[in-house]
Simulated scan of single mutants.
Amino acid sequence: MPGKMIELEEYIKQQQKEPDNYTPVFYRLKNQQEYDALLALLASKPHIQVYDQISSQLSELMKIRNPAKRLTTEESEQQINEFLGNASLSTIGVWVYFPWSGRVVHILDEKEFVELRTSRNKHKITDEEAAILGTKKIGIIGLSVGQSIALTLAMERVCGELRLADFDELELSNMNRIRTGIYNLSQSKVVIAAREIAELDPFIKVKCYTQGATEDNLMDFMTGNGQLDILVEECDGIDIKIISRMKAKELKIPVVMEMNDRGMLDIERFDLDPELPLLHGLIPDLDLVTLQNLTSEEKIPILGPMVGMKDMSPKMKYSLTEIGKSITTWPQLASSVVLGGAMVADTCRRIILDQLRSSGRYYVDFEQLIR
């Protein structure tokens, strides 16, 4: 047995850390070069798994395009053949390679893919509204609560581009509220989220900031390749919480925050009211130099009103007194995180579609609503 243990340890040492790749690769086989490139990829990496269910996607596409009629098998096949024209099944749509999982999946191309994947959003989201949402950019700082938000935004297709910022890597204790597999331990939280989004909808653009949001990269995060339409702030650091709001206010970008306790949601409409005080005036007006030089003790009276400490649930208040004693940081529950994802996604959609114009702090407290 000792010899076998040494053999296992040597095998583990030889394994290289997986690169932070989160961008899928597209192959459209009507292009001969891309056809050849896909064949070369499959030949060079025989472990790749290939998933080709394009026929079922085409059948479902014909079904949703004929909602008032139950198509017979023959009628469905006829419509599929008309859709194909002279093309073969293999050259229809796009083949998507996910390098991190070693999978190639054959799917409809973007227009038809989005049409089919979001078909059950109708009429809660109209075609006109979906077209608007698809052009929008949302940035999320903090990928614990932020992971649920990012995935919900992607599932509902509330935007066409997501920017994700977090410097942290996944730890086992994070998995009480971050939905992922244990094989992702020590992987970047933003990369984990970006990969899951790509596997759900590879046409949504995702940009990751694995160093987190910093004073140096915030302007790029908010304006690079076009300005954000909404900033979702879910980070733990008080400095970035305030600095990001300063930048958002300067750029007239609305800010949405969910606090993961009592369903507290915070909205700041700097786009509608550029003079709106940061966090509704709950924190003092600090300049950047003063903020960067605050001691831990000086941050506490600022953090309290910022996170709504006086209105927290009794269990959360008690938990804060136990940090450094029986726990290392404040607790978060998966149920609250998932609720936060839903609330923020709904709020972002309504802000983008000009269906919500208010600023303020709101509570969806199940313990108060359901007794």
Score class of each variant (00 low, 15 high):
Ile6Met: 09
Glu9His: 13
Ile12Trp: 14
Glu18Leu: 13
Thr23Phe: 09
Pro24His: 03
Val25Gln: 11
Gln32Asp: 11
Gln33Ile: 12
Tyr35Ser: 11
Leu42Ser: 03
Ser44Thr: 09
Ser44Asp: 15
His47Ile: 08
Ile48Pro: 04
Ile48Gly: 05
Ser56Phe: 14
Ala68Cys: 10
Lys69Trp: 08
Ser76Lys: 13
Gln79Pro: 04
Gln79Ile: 07
Asn81Leu: 12
Asn81Asp: 14
Phe83Asp: 04
Ser90Thr: 13
Ile92Asn: 11
Gly93Pro: 04
Gly93Trp: 02
Val96Arg: 00
Pro99Leu: 05
Val105Cys: 08
Lys111Trp: 11
Glu115Gly: 06
Thr118Cys: 01
Thr118Glu: 01
Ile125Ser: 04
Ile125Asn: 00
Glu128Gly: 10
Ala130Ser: 11
Ala130Glu: 12
Gly142Pro: 01
Ala154Pro: 06
Arg163Val: 03
Phe167His: 12
Leu170Ile: 05
Arg177Lys: 05
Arg177Ala: 00
Arg177Tyr: 04
Leu185Asp: 05
Ser186Leu: 12
Thr214Trp: 06
Asp216His: 14
Leu218Ile: 06
Met222Ile: 03
Gln227Gly: 11
Ile230Gly: 02
Val232Asn: 04
Glu234Phe: 02
Ile238Trp: 07
Lys249Ser: 06
Leu251Cys: 00
Val256Ile: 09
Met257Gly: 08
Glu258Tyr: 15
Arg262Pro: 00
Gly263Lys: 00
Met264Thr: 08
Glu268Asp: 12
Glu275Gln: 12
Leu276Phe: 03
Pro277Arg: 01
His280Ser: 05
Ile283Glu: 05
Pro284His: 05
Asp287Phe: 07
Leu288Ala: 07
Asn293Cys: 08
Ile300Arg: 14
Leu303Val: 13
Leu303Asn: 12
Gly304Ala: 13
Gly304Asp: 14
Gly304Gln: 13
Met306Val: 08
Asp311Ser: 09
Met312Asn: 08
Ser313Ala: 10
Lys317Ile: 00
Tyr318Ala: 11
Tyr318His: 15
Gly324Ala: 03
Gly324Lys: 01
Thr329Lys: 12
Trp330Arg: 09
Ser335Trp: 10
Ser335Leu: 11
Val338Phe: 14
Val338Ala: 14
Met343Trp: 01
Ala345Tyr: 05
Asp346Met: 10
Thr347Ile: 02
Ile352Pro: 01
Arg357Trp: 10
Arg357Thr: 15
Tyr362Asp: 07
Tyr363Pro: 01
Tyr363Ala: 01
Asp365Asn: 01
Phe366Asn: 12
Arg371Cys: 12
